[in-house]
Design a binder for these strands. Structure first.
Length: 304
DNA sequence: AGAGGCACCTGTTCGC
DNA sequence: TGCGAACAGGTGCCTC
C-alpha cells in the first residue's frame, strides 16, 4: 500500500501509539523480509523509547533513545495495525479471532503504553533496518535519494534541472526515486493527467534549451504537490488492503481520474477521450490520449 | 548513461 | 468449479 500518501497516513496513525512509548517486547518471526533483519534486531529495539516518528519519501523513520533509527519500508504489501491490550481492533482482519497472529504478521512491537503494533506483509517486499541517526543521510537507503516532493525543493525550476537533457519518458523519470523520491505508479499517472502531459514525452521536454522550466514544468510541480496533499488528506488510497493503522480505509481511490480506469470515459468536461492503458518499463500507465497530447519527440516521429 | 527485463513473493482476479 | 495466466501500491541488480 505504499506511495508517499499511504506511508504518511501510516506515520500519522502510528505516531500517537509509538512516540513517547518504550518498546517493551519485540517479536521477530522470521530472519528476513526482502532483506535480512539487521544483527541483534530485537535486542537493539527492546527497552528503547521511540522519540520521534518521521518519514522520508516512502520510508518510515522511528528515532530511538539509543541514537539509532529504525527504518521501515512497506514494499508493495506491507501494513501496520495498531491494537490495544493485544486485542485487534479489527478481529478477523489479519489477526485471528482469538488475538492470535496472522500468517504474514512478521514483526510485533509491544509498547509500554499497552499498544501493540503489528507489521504484516504478504509479499515481503518490505524491510526494516537500524542505522545510527548520525549516518541516516549517508546510509545505503538514503544516499543518492531524490528530493522530497512535499518539501520546498520541488519547483518547476528543480524539475527542469533534474530532467534537462533526459530522453527517458516522463513516466520513468517521475518514478525514478533518485530524482524525486516518493512518487509511485498511481500518483505519477494522476499527476501527468492533471498536467496534460503525455507519459511517453521525453523528460527533457520540460526544460528549455537554456535549462529553464517550461510552463508545463511549473504546472507539474504544483500538481504533484496538490495530488499528494489531496491523497494524504483522504487517508491515502485503498486498493487491496486497508490504508490506515486502525484498519479503516483511505478513500483517495475514489478520486482517481485515470489510474485503473482503462476504457473509462475521460473525466475532463467536454473531452470525448477514453482512458488508455499502456505498459512502460513493465508497469501499467493510464492516460487520456486527448488531454495528454502525444509527444513531439523523435520517438513519435519515427512511429508516425 | 540509461533503458529494459527479471527477480524478489503471495494473493486476487480474469478468461477459458 | 478448476486451473493457469496475468496482474498488483516497489526497488535492486543484471544486461545491452
Amino acid at each position: 500500500m505504499p506511495e508517499l500518501p499511504e506511508v504518511e497516513t501510516v506515520r500519522r496513525g502510528l505516531e500517537p501509539a509509538m512516540v513517547g512509548a518504550r518498546l517493551t517486547k519485540v517479536v521477530q518471526r522470521r530472519p528476513d523480509l526482502r532483506f535480512p533483519f539487521p544483527d541483534r534486531f530485537v535486542e537493539r529495539l527492546e527497552g528503547q523509547e521511540v522519540t520521534a516518528l518521521g518519514r522520508r519519501a516512502k520510508y518510515l523513520l522511528a528515532d530511538l533513545s539509543s541514537g539509532e533509527v529504525l527504518i521501515m519500508h512497506l514494499g508493495m504489501s506491507g501494513r501496520f495495525l495498531v491494537s490495544q491490550s493485544g486485542k485487534s481492533v479489527m478481529p478477523g482482519e489479519f489477526h485471528h479471532e482469538h488475538g492470535g497472529l496472522g500468517a504474514h504478521d512478521h514483526v510485533i512491537f509491544g509498547l509500554s503504553n499497552g499498544a501493540t503494533v503489528t507489521y504484516n506483509d504478504a509479499r515481503r517486499f518490505g524491510f526494516m533496518d537500524l542505522v545510527p541517526r548520525s549516518e541516516i543521510e549517508t546510509c545505503r537507503h538514503f544516499s543518492g535519494m531524490g528530493i522530497e516532493p512535499l518539501g520546498n525543493e520541488l519547483s518547476g525550476e528543480t524539475i527542469a534541472r533534474l530532467f534537462a537533457g533526459k530522453r527517458t519518458p516522463l513516466k520513468a523519470a517521475l518514478l525514478d526515486q533518485r530524482l524525486i523520491a516518493g512518487l509511485g505508479n498511481i500518483y505519477v499517472c494522476e499527476a501527468l493527467f492533471r498536467t496534460g502531459l503525455h507519459p511517453e514525452a521525453p523528460a527533457g521536454s520540460l526544460a528549455t534549451a537554456k535549462g529553464r522550466p517550461t510552463e508545463k514544468a511549473d504546472q507539474l510541480a504544483g500538481v504533484i504537490r496538490e495530488v499528494l496533499a489531496e491523497a494524504v488528506e483522504a487517508g491515502g488510497s485503498t486498493l487491496r488492503d486497508h490504508a490506515q493503522v486502525d484498519g479503516s480505509l483511505g478513500y483517495f481511490q475514489h478520486s482517481f481520474r485515470v489510474y485503473d480506469r482503462e476504457g473509462g470515459a475521460c473525466v475532463t468536461p467536454g473531452c470525448t477521450g477514453t482512458v488508455i492503458r499502456l505498459v512502460q518499463s513493465g508497469r501499467s500507465t493510464f492516460y487520456c490520449p486527448q488531454c495528454q497530447a502525444a509527444p513531439q519527440g523523435s520517438a513519435r516521429r519515427r512511429a508516425g
